[in-house]
Design a protein around this nucleic acid. Structure first.
Lengths: 209, 209
DNA sequence: TGACTTTTGGATCGATTAGTATAAAAATAA
DNA sequence: TTATTTTTATACTAATCGATCCAAAAGTCA
């Protein structure tokens, strides 16, 4: 981008990735500027602020990067090329898979990096809360589509079902952090999805009449 | 306890309660000594350290107090006077009820006050992780009892079922923090418990044969 | 070359962090 | 009263927090 001037000595994107991993592991507040700068290749404070303006500015970029990479697993909830049931299940399974990978911090950055924070950092918590709300909205759309196309009956309690799946989804971050392995999580997902089958309209089923 | 010496000018237990509420709301790391001392009735630093030794010492007492009061909702998982199913359901419902009450911070202190923290505070995270593990153990005992007394079939995947309920339980802390109301949570719990009924051994059921 | 632009290293900012030192204050015990 | 014990107020510590200042360095452009 800058055509003139002294060239930057560090790779900006690599720096954002390194920062994201720290924020993911320790959260926004517990990650210090000193740690960030060290992880970004021992860059100076001047270089840091010239490139990112503030700690919060960097965090926002780190969150954006996370969403565009690891967080893409949530996009499964928006997949309209498969049944709603498959979209929900795939969203859960891909989240479980990603969150238990050992090549990066366990759990989900959006769920973990600002759960509890100082009063003056409440806007950071809300920033992530809005991202969680987005994902919840995709699950809601998914279930509404299921009702619209007959996968689920009209009588389905949408808010209840969204809450059921979304609560489980969020709980996975805690479980992953505490070391629960993927296979166990996947078995639980299989069982959770059986609820969908119990609710779905089955041919010849007159039990609700 | 102290028979001689200048009497303490503040109520120790009240101070622990005030501290617990701060830790619950903002987490261990984000709660400063200054905030704690202010909430404890503007006590001096000297008074603080004389009474609690350190911030961590106070936190441990706050956690103990939480467990002996608000955290008692988890005791439902250990209730052997009712069916295992009722114990699990009651544990979830009482947790949902407690975590959505507006008379104190939302969610569960054990799940929220040290999810992500500095590397040097990892032992604090582990302290809470062990408490979570306890509750998970109670749920496991509960399910094993169900199998032993015929509520659930011998073929039941214990680890899967524990994970299913415990993951939902933990997710409730996140949902409560984001403002999901109790009624919605309760509807989801009702649906979640239907899984139990689907697994339970029913008279005349030959579908698994 | 010399003007211009941006990044750099290094020193530093004021505020805040958890925690201490000291001695006076306030109680009991003999 | 005097000795003993504990808590108190006040001042202070060293370290760290996020962020800034400044001048040298290192590039482009005319």
């Amino acid at each position: 981008m800058p055509r003139t001037g002294r060239p930057r000595a560090f790779n900006r994107e690599e720096a954002v990735v390194a920062a994201m991993l720290l924020f993911w592991e320790h959260g926004f507040e517990a990650t210090s500027l000193a740690q960030l700068r060290a992880a970004m290749g021992n860059i100076s404070a001047a270089s840091f602020y010239a490139a990112f303006e503030s700690k919060e500015g960097l965090f926002r970029e780190a969150v954006d990067f996370y969403i565009s990479t690891y967080g893409q697993v949530s996009e499964s909830f928006r997949d309209r090329s498969v049944t709603s049931r498959a979209a929900i299940e795939e969203g859960l399974r891909r989240s479980a898979q990603m969150q238990t990978e050992r090549s990066h911090p366990l759990g989900c950055l959006i769920n973990l990096s600002a759960v509890a924070c100082s009063p003056e950092l409440e806007h950071i918590r809300e920033l992530l809360s809005k991202e969680r709300e987005k994902v919840r909205g995709w699950q809601k759309d998914c279930i509404e589509r299921a009702i619209a196309n007959g996968e689920l009956p009209e009588s389905t309690d949408i808010l209840m079902l969204v809450t059921l799946f979304d609560t489980f989804l969020r709980g996975m971050s805690s479980q992953a952090r505490d070391g629960v392995p993927l296979e166990v999580m996947n078995a639980a997902i299989t069982q959770l999805m059986s609820i969908w089958d119990g609710l779905s309209v089955r041919v010849g089923d007159r039990s609700n009449v």
